[in-house]
Design a binder for these strands. Structure first.
Ligand SMILES: NC(=O)c1ccc[n+]([C@@H]2O[C@H](COP(=O)([O-])OP(=O)(O)OC[C@H]3O[C@@H](n4cnc5c(N)ncnc54)[C@H](O)[C@@H]3O)[C@@H](O)[C@H]2O)c1
Ligand SMILES: NC(=O)c1ccc[n+]([C@@H]2O[C@H](COP(=O)([O-])OP(=O)(O)OC[C@H]3O[C@@H](n4cnc5c(N)ncnc54)[C@H](O)[C@@H]3O)[C@@H](O)[C@H]2O)c1
Lengths: 246, 246
DNA sequence: AGGCGCTTGTGAAGGCGTGCACAAATCGCG
DNA sequence: CGCGATTTGTGCACGCCTTCACAAGCGCCT
């Protein structure tokens, strides 16, 4: 999904096994495990079984075990995983202990909501700067942060050691903004503008496109509707439980 | 990813090949092709080669051809694909010609931005209702739509034939809202609240979690940082081009 | 101390997705 | 009318991911 780079292992010299080299599919699930673990920790659980954690994260338990085994897992047979320990492990692997600095470009409709979102801070990130090109927006105060002009991006990024940038500008300017981010030293981009970004090979891009998500859902709606000729009516054959709830 | 259901092919009776039964990976890319095609159509192109379209969509051309071949493709060897025809085909497959009705639950920070987003309407969807539980929000007018109380969901959903619901409420109430949506007949849910939803097997859920996206990026940052001991500096070895730009 | 139940970690198999490489098809031109 | 250039559609091989099934390990209870 999205535009990833990550070839296979580069010809790593024989020394320290610098990094576990986890499968992409696994690292994409770690954040979900982490969220579930935090939730469990709040309820006072000291340990979890792979079954329990898997249910809380919405995955197969075998998959979970294999995922955790990849990072040289700390589990105890017959008991389960130590919640606190696992949280620390995953946070380290994801690099969340570094509390990375993030900047947001484009403080419009969406950007405004993102700038005020508490979920960033609570999950390992600091939004340290907001940028916009509109002179009317520059100077505006949002959630304790000043909106700055996009031309200051390079300077501010250097000052604050920003490595992650979020793009929330109109599609037409997204590539321009991406170029500016890259020039400012950003090496990871989260893009909300529809369209494909072109970036150097050392820069990672992840894309969030709402319309695409809806269109995928629409396809399945279409498919379901075309099967109404079959029996079965609309009985809700619920099969999974263990809702995370609050 | 996310929580999908879609087992393999159910024991379909011998009759009409009701639906192409496309691979999930393919249908996840169709929307991107569609966006690229619309862009091409605006520039006046009548046909595209697989190479051209693939570049515009940011994928391998072989993959694109295989994807299109799955839907009994309309391409001409030696020429390429007819843009208008392909647009119509993909829109039909995705069910976008039905202009599906969508409702949004939770008109807070994020919900407000979503409610005002023009990208829904322009890409095949009608946002026909907004719901919230907060009496202060009910009655508010956003983008020509009235915010209604969540208790009216069932009635309105029936009246407007709503099949897709978007959840933008706090995590603690997301499951409750999902249950309400399902009870109201919604069979596809796009969820912005972190956490796992439990729904009947006939309901599709897709999840958008910003923090997860950032954490995946963070991992790669962490990995990159751990490789600074290697040569290579920061030369930007750009390898892909064909930016979509405006 | 020994046995029993529980849970992890993993070997192996199967399925899915990707990308190469090429045959088949079509167009345009001489 | 035939030929070459071009581009699609796909057979095939490879690798990744998922899932089952089970041996190995751990703690508790007797
Ligand atoms: N609003 C939504 O709910 C929503 C949902 C999904 C995707 N998106 C996408 O997110 C992007 C932003 O949407 P929006 O509704 O917030 O649009 P918007 O027009 O409200 O905001 C865009 C902001 O970007 C700023 N901007 C424009 N060019 C810029 C530049 N070169 N540098 C810095 N800032 C610049 C503008 O001044 C404006 O403040 C769009 O690409 C849209 O397609 C929006
Ligand atoms: N704000 C963001 O940028 C952002 C980004 C990513 C994810 N999210 C997630 O999206 C969700 C909403 O975020 P937000 O910032 O808009 O929160 P918010 O608190 O601003 O808005 C939540 C809204 O939901 C309404 N609500 C609460 N319970 C309800 C119920 N049972 N039925 C109907 N409406 C109900 C509230 O009245 C409120 O208007 C959260 O789960 C958040 O984690 C937000």
């Amino acid at each position: 999904m999205s535009q990833q780079r990550h070839g296979s292992t580069p010809g790593e010299a024989g020394g320290v096994p610098a990094f576990p080299d986890l499968p992409e599919a696994t690292i994409a699930r770690l954040p979900e495990y982490l969220r579930a673990l935090h939730h469990l920790a709040e309820t006072g659980a000291e340990t979890v079984s792979s079954e329990g954690l898997a249910a809380a994260a919405g995955v197969n338990s075998a998959k979970l075990r294999k995922d955790l085994s990849h990072l040289g897992s700390y589990g105890t047979r017959g008991v389960g995983y130590d919640v606190a320990l696992l949280v620390a492990q995953i946070e380290f692997i994801l690099g969340l202990d570094e509390n990375r600095a993030v900047c947001l470009v484009g403080v419009g409709n969406l950007g405004h909501a993102l700038a005020g979102y508490a979920g960033f801070a609570s999950r390992g990130f600091r939004v340290v700067a907001l940028f916009d090109a509109d002179p009317n927006k520059v100077g505006e105060q949002i959630n304790g942060l000043n909106v700055q002009h996009i031309d200051d991006l390079r300077r501010v990024a250097a000052e604050e050691s920003i490595t992650i940038g979020v793009i929330a500008t109109p599609p037409g300017t997204a590539q321009m903004v991406a170029d500016a981010l890259v020039a400012a030293g950003v090496t990871s981009i989260l893009n909300f503008a529809p369209g494909v970004l072109s970036v150097p090979a050392n820069v990672d891009v992840r894309k969030v496109d709402l319309a695409i998500e809806l269109q995928i859902l629409s396809f399945h709606e279409h498919r379901k509707a075309s099967l109404t000729s079959l029996p079965g009516g609309r009985s809700a054959a619920a099969d999974n439980q263990e809702a995370v709830g609050s």
